[in-house]
Design a protein around this nucleic acid. Structure first.
Lengths: 119, 119
DNA sequence: CCGGATCCTCTGCGATACTG
DNA sequence: CAGTATCGCAGAGGATCCGG
C-alpha cells in the first residue's frame, strides 16, 4: 500500500486535524451556508489560520464551495457542503455509531446520543 | 461542539496521521497477527518512531492487542485487531466507497477497485 | 537479527496581533 | 468580517544506534 492508492490518499486528506469537525459543523442545523466567523465561533479551540487552511483544502477538493458577497459591507463569505461533501457525512456518522457502540465514556453523549451534533 | 463530545474526541483519535493506514494493514490478508517489521515494510513511507507511537495509542484504546513471544529468538512481537478494531474497519470501508464514488482519479485503483487493500 | 529508542531536522499546529 | 503575519512549540520525517 503506497500513495498511489486512492484510499490511502483519501485518508490522508480527510484525516487532517479539524477537517472532519469542520465538515460536521457545516452539516449541522440543516447544512445551509455558513460564514467564516460562525464556523470559528462554533468550533471551540480552532485557530483562524488552521480554519483558513482547511477551508481552502476542502474547496480545492470540491467537498465545499466558497461564495463571496462583495456587494455587502462588511464583506460576507459563505461556505457550504457540496453534494460530494454531504455524501462524506455518512463516514462521520459511521464513526459516531462506532464510538457509541464502543466508547461511550461520558454522560453527556450517552444521554443525548450525540444529538448536539445533529448526526 | 467541543472536546466533551464523544464524536469530537473519537475523530481526534482515529484521524491522526497513519492510524487508519495501520488499522487497514492489520486487516489485510485475513486479519491475523502481524509483526512490527512486517507492518513497517508493508506500509511504505512510515517511520519506526511514528509506527511505534501509533501502535501504543491503538493498544491503549483497545483497537489492537500486543503479544510478545519471549521464548523465541529473536523476540517476536505481534499486533492484532481486537473486536473493536475490526468493527472500525467498516468506517474505512465507507471511506473507500466514498473515494471510489467521487475521487477515482488514477487508473490503478479504478481497475483494481482497490482490491490491493482487501477491502 | 528484531523491535524499537534516540537524536536531529523540519513541517505543521497553537496563540496572539494585526490589516484590507 | 475574513482572513494574514509572526512567533513558539509539538509532532512527523530521516538516519543511526542499541538491548535482548
Amino acid at each position: 500500500m503506497d500513495d498511489n492508492c486512492t484510499v490511502f490518499r483519501t485518508v490522508d486528506l480527510v484525516s487532517k486535524k479539524w477537517t472532519m469537525v469542520i465538515l460536521l459543523e457545516l452539516y449541522r442545523d440543516g447544512g445551509g451556508p455558513k460564514r467564516y466567523s460562525t464556523i470559528k465561533n462554533e468550533i471551540l479551540g480552532i485557530t483562524p489560520k488552521v480554519l483558513s487552511t482547511r477551508l481552502k483544502e476542502l474547496v480545492k477538493h470540491d467537498l465545499i464551495t466558497k461564495e463571496i458577497d462583495v456587494s455587502s459591507f462588511p464583506i460576507k463569505t459563505e461556505y457550504e457542503l457540496t453534494e460530494m461533501g454531504i455524501d462524506f457525512i455518512k463516514v462521520i456518522k459511521e464513526i459516531k455509531e462506532w464510538a457509541l457502540r464502543w466508547k461511550v465514556d461520558n454522560r453527556v453523549c450517552a444521554q443525548l446520543d450525540c444529538s448536539e451534533c445533529n448526526l
